[in-house]
């Protein structure tokens, strides 16, 4: 278990290198970190998915 978690940390660490300063996007006076931008994009995707993906309904009538 310890070996598995260590290996997982190494794999994730190679994909997401968090050593060093963060990345930022500048647009006029607006400064936005790439991490926050990714979260905002994910929220927009989940918002539209929640509207478009059908919801499985239970029961026979509407109430």
């Amino acid at each position: 278990m310890q070996t598995l978690s260590t290996a997982l940390i190494q794999v994730l660490g190679s994909v997401f290198n968090l050593t060093g300063p963060g990345h930022y996007i500048n647009w006029g006076f607006i400064q936005l970190s790439v991490a926050n931008l990714i979260v905002i994009i994910l929220m927009v995707i989940v918002f539209f998915a929640a509207i478009l993906i059908p919801f499985r309904r239970h029961g026979g009538d509407d109430r």
Binding site: F47, A49, A50, I51, I53, F55, R57, G59, D62, R63
Partner: peptide, 14 residues
């Protein structure tokens, strides 16, 4: 125990 039919959407889960 029940909700109106229009509540059957994922947007109401949040």
């Amino acid at each position: 125990d029940r909700q109106p039919a229009y509540v059957a959407s994922w947007i109401y889960v949040f």
